[in-house]
Design a protein around this nucleic acid. Structure first.
Lengths: 221, 221, 221, 221
DNA sequence: AATGAATGAGTATTCATTCAT
DNA sequence: AATGAATGAATACTCATTCAT
């Protein structure tokens, strides 16, 4: 069997095992057995438990990021982009539960040497979301050119300082992570519904929500 | 030294060690040394690593929940309650970083026998938040009695089915968890600011936010 | 509570625990708890686990030996003495099952430092039985004074060299030990019946033996 | 080195160590060192201390039983079979002293989880002996066909109720166990002599028993 | 390309025993 | 006369990792 395929098998077994047991509790024996190969072969190909786990994290992070980025169509308005990105996010995590658990839970116990690896992914997601929020701000400004010149007060309303922007993005990403976990274990919640819930929550605001507003707003439907 | 005090020492050492290393990677040797006692004493008082960890989780969960509940004044309107609850949450997690890490990260690796323990805490938080959102909905209806009879569309706008309610609460709790982590490692973000960011995000809605709205709304100031 | 009574309590708890668990598996904690005292008190009175066990063995051995000796009436013929001694043996072991288990099983794992202690008891039992067999031989000779002078062949038949004597006694003691275990766990076997079974088995054999019969019988040679 | 051979080495070391120290006092470290391997290898091949001990007991029990059964020639009369079986028993125990100690002493501390294992062996030996005694009874009846019709008293004399039979077999097995211990530590007692001692002791007694004699003899009643 | 055989280093847990009071 | 508090030393068991083939 060619090396590349064997490696895929091993990675799949590793993701599954790490997802189910956690980094420390997973044993190389179990991974090798699940992959259907001998332990020395795992070491020959992937060097060590730590490297193997790091490779799993990197692979799953790249796949998730790619899925989200593929879901975002830069030609669309920012809220649409966010909505489709979230849908892609919820779809991907639902379809790769082990990988998602590895990323979201198992890789985040601090003190382990791969802590930075997954923090990197999260930072990329936060940056992506922050970018979308910033884009939305620009669009809002562009949509009301009149107000652009109406005064500094208005403008201030549309400017978000960097720290606020990051905080908002952190909140949105956290909300998405939480909803992903909840949606994956609650039957009958589709990725689209989860995305809509989050858009309602974040975009529209709870206050407006209670006034009957929903996302997408009627004008955009 | 009296037993109760020794136990407190041990629990503190355990929370610190579990927070820094994770459940599996923490060793009873390290905990005992940090507590300044011999290992057998830890076993004499707390029976086993698993029981010790469960005790830590329970203690930290109870403390966090108590802090949040103490921060919520039922005499206030729902948005005020939510804001003060969030402030208490961010304060508590900032003051007990090890306990927060134990709860939020280390206790959530699935497959371990205490998985349910921390899930319980999270469910309580979600329920608490869901209760506040439902209360807000009631208040909104009460505030516009006229609209109550004005038609089904309006009413529908103020009714939240249970699943939506839970989803929103999950999103809010996830956002808070995420912000707590970010605020704790970003210098200069106070609990109040974190709470305001989240209220802006959730209560007002990003859309309104970009239109210059802020929480608390001018009328409430 | 006076020291002597406390010591009796402890010894009783120890015999019970050692009997149920064995020397190594019994813990001083369990013994102290069963005796209703604190562990340091056990050490204060009985010094160490090994000394405690040795004391148990000595106590039970002395009690068993005393019971057997009390059952043997030197004024009776040897077979009667043997029968009543066996009855006393089976009665005592039935009434003190824990003590018997300690003597017969738990104290006989070699390598432990008290190995000699229980070997001593057994040697005394074997010597007692050997004495009875020798007495029986003397009685047999005395009962047939005529044959005493009839020739060396006859005499040889009634003389048992020391090694044979010891071997026979060992066999009889082993048979008794085995029957004691069997009788204690087989309902409906009384000490008298056990003694009768053994006498049936052994005595008629011994009798013939003393009359010069040997196996294989002459006809089969 | 091939696995099977290593396993044999380990079993031998284990039998020796368990025989010398007892189950609880034997340490896996000592066994591994005596076998000349590292401890993990012992665990890899034999799983746990308990399984290792059970395997030792099973192996030694099977070997002893096989030796005894090989010594019994069903074509021979019952007394010959018993004698040769006993000779095989004493030979085997003399040649495998560690195994015999494991079976006869170390495996019989009650409360340990393998208690049943060795009880099984003993029950098989008792059943085998009981079978031989029953066979002897049949042979005795067959040898005196005339007496078969001569009256109920005679017949009764040759019938042994099941419980008596078991009791006799227990006594004989116990006597053999005791003699084995004695013979093994008394220089100059050959297996044949031990077997002869026991046959002298037991067989002539059994013979009379089968002829209807009982203790106490009628004259003494 | 692949593996059977093997281990050094560590981990949770237990227990006989002592000290200060 | 009695105990609550405490520990040094040991033990069963596991695991990531390597070597010889």
């Amino acid at each position: 069997m060619p090396r590349a395929e064997r490696e895929r098998q091993m990675m799949a077994a590793a993701v599954r095992t790490f997802g189910r047991r956690g980094y420390r509790a997973a044993s190389m024996d179990e991974i090798a057995e699940l992959a259907g190969v001998s332990k020395p072969l795992v070491y020959l190909y992937l060097n060590s438990k730590e490297e193997l786990f790091t490779a799993c994290v990197r692979q799953e992070a790249a796949a998730l990021l790619a899925a989200v980025e593929a879901g975002v169509d830069p030609g669309q308005p920012a809220d649409r982009q966010l909505w489709s990105g979230l849908t892609a996010f919820f779809s991907h995590t639902a379809e790769h539960p082990d990988g998602w658990v590895v990323l979201n839970r198992q890789a985040r116990t601090q003190g382990e040497p791969f802590a930075g690896e997954v923090a990197g992914l999260r930072d990329e997601l936060v940056a992506l979301v922050a970018g979308l929020i910033a884009a939305a701000a620009r669009e809002a400004r562009a949509a009301c050119p009149a107000s652009a010149g109406s005064g500094p007060a208005d403008l201030a309303g549309r400017e978000l300082p960097g720290q606020d922007l990051t905080g908002l993005a952190q909140a949105l990403v956290g909300a998405a992570e939480s909803l992903a976990g909840w949606a994956n274990e609650t039957p009958g919640v589709s990725p689209e519904e989860a995305a809509a819930t989050l858009m309602n929550f974040a975009w529209t605001g709870l206050g407006n929500l209670l006034d009957g507003e929903r996302w997408p707003p009627p004008s955009a439907r």
